[in-house]
Write a protein that binds this DNA or RNA. Structure first.
Lengths: 155, 155
DNA sequence: TTGTGTGCAAAAGCTTTGCATGTTG
DNA sequence: CAACATGCAAAGCTTTTGCACACAA
Protein backbone atom coordinates (compact mmCIF):
# COMPACT_ATOMS: atom_id res chain seq x y z
CA UNK A 1 0.00 0.00 0.00
CA UNK A 2 2.61 2.53 1.09
CA UNK A 3 6.32 2.47 1.84
CA UNK A 4 7.87 3.19 5.22
CA UNK A 5 8.49 6.89 4.70
CA UNK A 6 4.99 7.64 3.49
CA UNK A 7 3.68 5.74 6.51
CA UNK A 8 5.71 8.02 8.75
CA UNK A 9 4.29 10.97 6.87
CA UNK A 10 0.77 9.67 7.37
CA UNK A 11 1.37 9.27 11.08
CA UNK A 12 2.51 12.85 11.36
CA UNK A 13 -0.60 14.01 9.58
CA UNK A 14 -3.03 12.07 11.71
CA UNK A 15 -1.32 13.15 14.90
CA UNK A 16 -1.82 16.74 13.80
CA UNK A 17 -5.42 16.17 12.90
CA UNK A 18 -6.10 14.52 16.24
CA UNK A 19 -4.29 17.26 18.08
CA UNK A 20 -6.39 19.90 16.36
CA UNK A 21 -9.54 17.95 17.10
CA UNK A 22 -8.72 17.68 20.79
CA UNK A 23 -7.93 21.37 20.95
CA UNK A 24 -11.11 22.36 19.21
CA UNK A 25 -13.19 20.30 21.62
CA UNK A 26 -11.33 21.34 24.75
CA UNK A 27 -10.07 17.83 25.36
CA UNK A 28 -6.69 17.11 26.85
CA UNK A 29 -3.69 16.06 24.84
CA UNK A 30 -2.50 13.12 26.85
CA UNK A 31 0.40 10.88 25.86
CA UNK A 32 -1.89 7.84 25.99
CA UNK A 33 -4.20 9.24 23.35
CA UNK A 34 -1.39 9.93 20.95
CA UNK A 35 0.28 6.62 21.65
CA UNK A 36 -2.91 4.75 20.84
CA UNK A 37 -3.41 6.64 17.60
CA UNK A 38 0.17 6.00 16.58
CA UNK A 39 -0.12 2.34 17.40
CA UNK A 40 -3.23 2.05 15.26
CA UNK A 41 -1.58 3.70 12.29
CA UNK A 42 1.48 1.47 12.58
CA UNK A 43 -0.71 -1.59 12.33
CA UNK A 44 -2.44 -2.78 9.21
CA UNK A 45 -5.74 -4.51 8.72
CA UNK A 46 -8.57 -4.75 11.19
CA UNK A 47 -8.29 -5.18 14.93
CA UNK A 48 -10.44 -5.26 18.03
CA UNK A 49 -10.06 -3.25 21.22
CA UNK A 50 -8.60 -6.14 23.20
CA UNK A 51 -5.95 -6.91 20.57
CA UNK A 52 -4.88 -3.29 20.56
CA UNK A 53 -4.72 -3.26 24.35
CA UNK A 54 -2.69 -6.47 24.50
CA UNK A 55 -0.35 -5.26 21.80
CA UNK A 56 0.40 -2.07 23.68
CA UNK A 57 0.88 -3.99 26.91
CA UNK A 58 3.33 -6.30 25.15
CA UNK A 59 5.36 -3.28 24.22
CA UNK A 60 5.36 -2.38 27.91
CA UNK A 61 3.24 0.66 27.30
CA UNK A 62 1.20 1.33 30.41
CA UNK A 63 -2.37 1.85 29.34
CA UNK A 64 -5.74 0.61 30.52
CA UNK A 65 -8.64 -0.90 28.66
CA UNK A 66 -10.81 2.02 29.71
CA UNK A 67 -8.46 4.44 27.99
CA UNK A 68 -8.27 2.29 24.89
CA UNK A 69 -12.05 2.24 24.58
CA UNK A 70 -12.33 5.92 25.37
CA UNK A 71 -9.71 6.87 22.81
CA UNK A 72 -11.16 4.63 20.12
CA UNK A 73 -14.43 6.45 20.55
CA UNK A 74 -12.72 9.79 20.13
CA UNK A 75 -10.92 8.59 17.04
CA UNK A 76 -14.15 7.36 15.53
CA UNK A 77 -15.68 10.78 16.25
CA UNK A 78 -13.00 12.58 14.31
CA UNK A 79 -13.06 10.08 11.45
CA UNK A 80 -9.55 8.77 11.94
CA UNK A 81 -10.83 5.32 12.77
CA UNK A 82 -13.83 3.35 11.58
CA UNK A 83 -15.76 0.90 13.70
CA UNK A 84 -17.31 -2.24 12.25
CA UNK A 85 -19.45 -5.15 13.39
CA UNK A 86 -18.72 -8.05 11.12
CA UNK A 87 -21.59 -10.17 12.35
CA UNK A 88 -19.89 -11.09 15.59
CA UNK A 89 -20.44 -9.59 19.01
CA UNK A 90 -17.09 -7.93 18.87
CA UNK A 91 -16.37 -4.50 17.45
CA UNK A 92 -13.63 -4.34 14.87
CA UNK A 93 -11.77 -1.16 14.03
CA UNK A 94 -9.56 0.09 11.23
CA UNK A 95 -7.67 3.27 10.49
CA UNK A 96 -9.48 5.39 7.94
CA UNK A 97 -7.43 8.48 7.18
CA UNK A 98 -6.33 8.66 3.55
CA UNK A 99 -8.31 5.57 2.68
CA UNK A 100 -10.90 5.61 -0.01
CA UNK A 101 -14.35 4.82 1.25
CA UNK A 102 -14.73 1.07 0.92
CA UNK A 103 -16.86 -1.87 1.95
CA UNK A 104 -16.03 -5.38 3.06
CA UNK A 105 -16.20 -8.92 1.85
CA UNK A 106 -15.83 -11.41 4.70
CA UNK A 107 -15.07 -15.11 4.41
CA UNK A 108 -17.33 -16.94 6.85
CA UNK A 109 -14.92 -19.88 6.94
CA UNK A 110 -11.57 -18.28 7.61
CA UNK A 111 -12.51 -14.76 8.65
CA UNK A 112 -10.48 -13.14 5.91
CA UNK A 113 -11.60 -9.59 5.10
CA UNK A 114 -11.26 -8.08 1.63
CA UNK A 115 -12.15 -4.54 0.67
CA UNK A 116 -13.90 -3.17 -2.38
CA UNK A 117 -15.44 0.03 -3.69
CA UNK A 118 -18.55 0.47 -5.73
CA UNK A 119 -20.05 3.80 -6.75
CA UNK A 120 -23.54 2.35 -6.80
CA UNK A 121 -23.59 2.43 -3.01
CA UNK A 122 -23.44 6.20 -3.08
CA UNK A 123 -26.32 6.28 -5.52
CA UNK A 124 -28.37 4.05 -3.26
CA UNK A 125 -27.63 6.25 -0.25
CA UNK A 126 -28.69 9.37 -2.10
CA UNK A 127 -31.85 7.83 -3.45
CA UNK A 128 -32.98 6.20 -0.21
CA UNK A 129 -32.19 9.30 1.82
CA UNK A 130 -34.43 11.31 -0.47
CA UNK A 131 -37.15 8.72 -0.67
CA UNK A 132 -37.39 7.92 3.04
CA UNK A 133 -36.63 11.43 4.27
CA UNK A 134 -33.46 10.56 6.10
CA UNK A 135 -30.22 12.46 6.37
CA UNK A 136 -27.83 9.61 5.82
CA UNK A 137 -24.51 10.04 7.55
CA UNK A 138 -22.82 6.70 6.97
CA UNK A 139 -23.39 3.11 6.02
CA UNK A 140 -22.05 -0.38 6.34
CA UNK A 141 -22.12 -2.97 3.58
CA UNK A 142 -20.73 -6.40 4.23
CA UNK A 143 -20.81 -9.29 1.80
CA UNK A 144 -20.37 -12.74 3.33
CA UNK A 145 -19.28 -15.89 1.60
CA UNK A 146 -16.48 -18.33 1.00
CA UNK A 147 -13.21 -17.54 -0.65
CA UNK A 148 -13.04 -20.14 -3.37
CA UNK A 149 -10.29 -22.69 -2.99
CA UNK A 150 -7.48 -21.27 -0.93
CA UNK A 151 -9.08 -20.81 2.45
CA UNK A 152 -6.30 -20.78 5.07
CA UNK A 153 -7.18 -21.40 8.68
CA UNK A 154 -9.93 -20.12 10.86
CA UNK A 155 -8.49 -17.13 12.78
CA UNK B 1 -48.68 -5.93 5.62
CA UNK B 2 -51.07 -8.87 5.90
CA UNK B 3 -54.44 -9.52 7.52
CA UNK B 4 -55.06 -11.93 10.37
CA UNK B 5 -56.01 -14.93 8.30
CA UNK B 6 -53.01 -14.73 6.00
CA UNK B 7 -50.84 -14.43 9.09
CA UNK B 8 -52.31 -17.68 10.37
CA UNK B 9 -51.61 -19.21 7.00
CA UNK B 10 -48.02 -18.02 7.14
CA UNK B 11 -47.60 -19.52 10.58
CA UNK B 12 -48.84 -22.88 9.36
CA UNK B 13 -46.38 -22.77 6.51
CA UNK B 14 -43.35 -21.90 8.60
CA UNK B 15 -44.22 -24.53 11.18
CA UNK B 16 -44.24 -27.10 8.39
CA UNK B 17 -40.98 -25.87 6.98
CA UNK B 18 -39.35 -25.98 10.38
CA UNK B 19 -40.75 -29.42 11.06
CA UNK B 20 -39.33 -30.71 7.78
CA UNK B 21 -36.00 -29.09 8.53
CA UNK B 22 -35.79 -30.73 11.96
CA UNK B 23 -36.71 -34.07 10.51
CA UNK B 24 -34.19 -33.84 7.72
CA UNK B 25 -31.41 -33.03 10.19
CA UNK B 26 -32.42 -35.60 12.79
CA UNK B 27 -33.26 -32.94 15.33
CA UNK B 28 -36.06 -33.30 17.81
CA UNK B 29 -39.45 -31.70 17.43
CA UNK B 30 -39.88 -30.21 20.85
CA UNK B 31 -42.81 -28.01 21.86
CA UNK B 32 -40.39 -25.24 22.85
CA UNK B 33 -38.95 -24.98 19.37
CA UNK B 34 -42.35 -24.65 17.76
CA UNK B 35 -43.58 -22.26 20.39
CA UNK B 36 -40.62 -19.97 19.79
CA UNK B 37 -41.11 -20.01 16.05
CA UNK B 38 -44.80 -19.25 16.45
CA UNK B 39 -44.09 -16.43 18.85
CA UNK B 40 -41.65 -14.89 16.38
CA UNK B 41 -44.12 -15.02 13.53
CA UNK B 42 -46.86 -13.47 15.66
CA UNK B 43 -44.65 -10.50 16.37
CA UNK B 44 -43.75 -7.79 13.91
CA UNK B 45 -40.60 -5.78 13.47
CA UNK B 46 -37.21 -6.53 14.93
CA UNK B 47 -36.47 -8.01 18.32
CA UNK B 48 -33.58 -9.26 20.37
CA UNK B 49 -33.22 -12.59 22.15
CA UNK B 50 -33.92 -11.15 25.58
CA UNK B 51 -37.12 -9.41 24.45
CA UNK B 52 -38.36 -12.66 22.96
CA UNK B 53 -37.52 -14.52 26.15
CA UNK B 54 -39.25 -11.96 28.36
CA UNK B 55 -42.29 -11.91 26.13
CA UNK B 56 -42.70 -15.67 26.35
CA UNK B 57 -42.20 -15.59 30.09
CA UNK B 58 -44.89 -12.94 30.38
CA UNK B 59 -47.25 -15.31 28.66
CA UNK B 60 -46.33 -17.86 31.30
CA UNK B 61 -44.62 -20.04 28.77
CA UNK B 62 -41.87 -21.96 30.50
CA UNK B 63 -38.75 -21.59 28.43
CA UNK B 64 -35.12 -20.80 29.14
CA UNK B 65 -32.72 -18.34 27.59
CA UNK B 66 -30.52 -21.21 26.48
CA UNK B 67 -33.37 -22.69 24.48
CA UNK B 68 -34.26 -19.33 22.99
CA UNK B 69 -30.70 -18.83 21.77
CA UNK B 70 -30.41 -22.38 20.57
CA UNK B 71 -33.68 -22.21 18.65
CA UNK B 72 -32.89 -18.83 17.13
CA UNK B 73 -29.72 -20.34 15.74
CA UNK B 74 -31.66 -23.21 14.22
CA UNK B 75 -34.15 -20.81 12.69
CA UNK B 76 -31.38 -18.74 11.19
CA UNK B 77 -29.90 -21.93 9.72
CA UNK B 78 -33.10 -22.78 7.93
CA UNK B 79 -33.68 -19.21 6.74
CA UNK B 80 -36.84 -18.61 8.70
CA UNK B 81 -35.18 -15.90 10.75
CA UNK B 82 -32.52 -13.35 9.93
CA UNK B 83 -29.94 -12.09 12.38
CA UNK B 84 -28.66 -8.51 12.31
CA UNK B 85 -26.11 -6.39 14.12
CA UNK B 86 -27.23 -2.81 13.82
CA UNK B 87 -24.00 -1.33 15.09
CA UNK B 88 -24.70 -2.23 18.70
CA UNK B 89 -23.36 -5.19 20.64
CA UNK B 90 -26.75 -6.79 20.63
CA UNK B 91 -28.03 -9.16 17.99
CA UNK B 92 -31.38 -8.26 16.48
CA UNK B 93 -33.58 -10.78 14.72
CA UNK B 94 -36.52 -10.70 12.34
CA UNK B 95 -38.72 -13.26 10.66
CA UNK B 96 -37.78 -13.72 7.04
CA UNK B 97 -40.14 -16.20 5.42
CA UNK B 98 -42.16 -14.71 2.61
CA UNK B 99 -40.38 -11.41 2.90
CA UNK B 100 -38.67 -9.85 -0.03
CA UNK B 101 -34.96 -9.48 0.48
CA UNK B 102 -34.46 -6.04 1.95
CA UNK B 103 -31.94 -3.82 3.67
CA UNK B 104 -32.18 -1.39 6.56
CA UNK B 105 -32.10 2.30 7.27
CA UNK B 106 -31.48 3.02 10.95
CA UNK B 107 -32.03 6.31 12.76
CA UNK B 108 -29.06 6.87 15.04
CA UNK B 109 -31.12 9.19 17.23
CA UNK B 110 -34.28 7.20 17.94
CA UNK B 111 -33.32 3.71 16.79
CA UNK B 112 -36.16 3.49 14.29
CA UNK B 113 -35.57 0.92 11.55
CA UNK B 114 -36.96 1.29 8.03
CA UNK B 115 -36.62 -1.24 5.26
CA UNK B 116 -35.88 -0.79 1.59
CA UNK B 117 -35.01 -2.80 -1.50
CA UNK B 118 -32.63 -1.92 -4.28
CA UNK B 119 -31.71 -4.19 -7.17
CA UNK B 120 -28.26 -2.63 -7.42
CA UNK B 121 -27.19 -4.59 -4.36
CA UNK B 122 -27.63 -7.82 -6.24
CA UNK B 123 -25.53 -6.47 -9.09
CA UNK B 124 -22.79 -5.51 -6.69
CA UNK B 125 -22.84 -8.94 -5.08
CA UNK B 126 -22.58 -10.66 -8.44
CA UNK B 127 -19.81 -8.42 -9.68
CA UNK B 128 -17.71 -8.55 -6.50
CA UNK B 129 -18.16 -12.28 -6.13
CA UNK B 130 -16.78 -12.74 -9.64
CA UNK B 131 -14.02 -10.20 -9.27
CA UNK B 132 -12.73 -11.32 -5.88
CA UNK B 133 -13.38 -15.02 -6.38
CA UNK B 134 -15.86 -15.41 -3.57
CA UNK B 135 -19.03 -17.42 -3.40
CA UNK B 136 -21.25 -14.86 -1.78
CA UNK B 137 -23.99 -16.33 0.35
CA UNK B 138 -25.50 -13.28 1.99
CA UNK B 139 -24.93 -9.66 2.82
CA UNK B 140 -25.85 -6.88 5.17
CA UNK B 141 -26.36 -3.27 4.14
CA UNK B 142 -27.27 -0.72 6.76
CA UNK B 143 -27.65 2.99 6.14
CA UNK B 144 -27.40 5.18 9.22
CA UNK B 145 -28.70 8.70 9.65
CA UNK B 146 -31.38 10.90 11.15
CA UNK B 147 -35.04 10.74 10.29
CA UNK B 148 -35.74 14.34 9.37
CA UNK B 149 -38.12 16.13 11.68
CA UNK B 150 -40.34 13.64 13.45
CA UNK B 151 -37.90 11.73 15.59
CA UNK B 152 -39.83 10.23 18.51
CA UNK B 153 -37.94 9.06 21.56
CA UNK B 154 -34.77 7.09 21.95
CA UNK B 155 -35.80 3.46 22.48
C1' DT C 1 -4.68 24.83 41.01
C1' DT C 2 -8.58 22.69 39.01
C1' DG C 3 -10.94 19.56 36.76
C1' DT C 4 -10.43 16.19 33.14
C1' DG C 5 -8.11 11.72 32.05
C1' DT C 6 -6.13 7.59 33.67
C1' DG C 7 -5.54 2.97 35.80
C1' DC C 8 -7.53 -0.55 38.10
C1' DA C 9 -11.00 -3.46 39.37
C1' DA C 10 -15.61 -4.29 39.77
C1' DA C 11 -19.96 -4.30 37.46
C1' DA C 12 -22.95 -4.68 33.63
C1' DG C 13 -24.94 -6.82 29.61
C1' DC C 14 -25.28 -10.33 26.07
C1' DT C 15 -24.33 -15.03 25.08
C1' DT C 16 -22.56 -19.69 25.98
C1' DT C 17 -21.72 -23.69 28.79
C1' DG C 18 -22.13 -27.53 32.33
C1' DC C 19 -24.88 -30.52 34.61
C1' DA C 20 -28.86 -32.86 36.23
C1' DT C 21 -33.38 -33.77 34.64
C1' DG C 22 -36.92 -34.55 31.23
C1' DT C 23 -38.63 -36.11 26.86
C1' DT C 24 -38.43 -37.45 21.93
C1' DG C 25 -37.86 -41.07 18.67
C1' DC D 1 -34.21 -46.72 26.77
C1' DA D 2 -30.75 -44.04 24.84
C1' DA D 3 -29.63 -39.85 23.05
C1' DC D 4 -30.66 -35.38 22.73
C1' DA D 5 -33.04 -31.01 24.43
C1' DT D 6 -34.27 -28.33 28.29
C1' DG D 7 -33.93 -25.42 32.51
C1' DC D 8 -31.23 -23.24 35.57
C1' DA D 9 -27.34 -21.05 37.13
C1' DA D 10 -22.73 -20.17 36.61
C1' DA D 11 -19.13 -18.75 33.67
C1' DG D 12 -17.27 -16.16 29.61
C1' DC D 13 -16.41 -12.16 26.96
C1' DT D 14 -16.70 -7.59 25.55
C1' DT D 15 -17.60 -3.12 27.16
C1' DT D 16 -18.79 0.34 30.75
C1' DT D 17 -18.50 2.47 35.23
C1' DG D 18 -16.80 4.16 39.87
C1' DC D 19 -13.27 5.93 42.39
C1' DA D 20 -8.86 7.60 43.83
C1' DC D 21 -4.84 9.43 41.90
C1' DA D 22 -2.20 11.87 38.24
C1' DC D 23 -1.38 15.41 35.25
C1' DA D 24 -2.55 18.80 31.34
C1' DA D 25 -3.88 23.46 30.93
Amino acid sequence: MQDASSKEQTIKEVLNIFSAYLEKNNLRKTPERFAILEEIYCRDDHFDAEALYIHMKNQNYRVSRATVYNTLELLVSCDLVTKHQFGKNLAQYEKSYGYKQHDHLICVDCGKVLEFCDPRIQQIKNMMGDLLKFTITHHSLNLYGQCNGACPDKS
